Simulated assay, not measured.
Amino acid sequence: MHETYLWLASFAQTGGLLLFVLGFALVIAYAFWPSKTRKKDFDDAANIPLKED
């Protein structure tokens, strides 16, 4: 029982780490992938605090 728990815990930790690393890489790729429409949207969003009310 103890060995099974350790194996499952190790598997879950490794799988979770890989899942989060993959998700992080996808978010970074989405943000930096060259696209004219997204660039305009991201630039507009970045300038929101600088706009006057």
Rank of each mutant, 00 (worst) to 15 (best):
M1Y: 11
H2A: 13
H2W: 11
H2T: 07
E3A: 14
E3P: 01
L6S: 12
L6C: 12
W7I: 08
L8C: 05
L8I: 06
L8Y: 03
A9W: 08
A9G: 06
F11M: 01
F11K: 13
A12K: 01
T14I: 14
G15T: 07
G16W: 09
G16I: 04
G16Q: 02
G16L: 01
G16D: 00
L18S: 15
L19N: 13
L19F: 15
L19R: 03
F20L: 15
F20G: 05
F20R: 15
V21R: 00
L22W: 10
L22F: 14
F24G: 10
F24R: 01
A25D: 02
V27H: 05
V27N: 03
V27Q: 00
A29P: 00
A31I: 07
F32V: 11
F32A: 13
W33K: 09
W33V: 04
S35G: 07
S35A: 02
S35T: 05
S35N: 13
T37A: 08
R38G: 05
K39Y: 10
K39V: 06
K39N: 13
K40F: 00
D44S: 04
D44W: 11
A46S: 09
N47I: 00
N47A: 06
I48Y: 10
I48T: 03
I48C: 00
P49W: 03
K51N: 12
K51T: 09
E52F: 12
